[in-house]
Amino acid sequence: MKFDDKVPIYYQIKNYLYHEMLTGTLNPGDKLPAVRQLAVDLTVNVNTVQRALSEMITEGTIESQRGKGNFVTADTTRLAQLKEQLVMTQLAQVYEQLHALNLTDEEIIASLKRYIEQKGAGQNA
């Protein structure tokens, strides 16, 4: 995959793995590829992958089992939290930007609804 070289790579690796976990490429309880394999697949440094993984272990989104490797947590509540957290981060950005355009909260909701309706119509057509 391509990285944005302006953003710390370990952070982008985390986001990549979150994405895999939430879209179902990696299911709860699944084993992650070995660190070196991940590094090769993503064309990044082993140490950087290690840093991303250890942060994720600390957060509880993945679990490390001695001698076996790393696994996506089977704790679905934790995964739900992660999803919520990611959704909120995305929304926060949109909200900040729309707010900066002097939209009120009601107007933001209304525009969002309009946007979804239009997009839905476009897809159905």
Partner: peptide, 14 residues
Amino acid sequence: KTDTIRSESGMDIE
């Protein structure tokens, strides 16, 4: 450290 450069300067390494 490269990740320090990225997070502190917001620039890519090049």
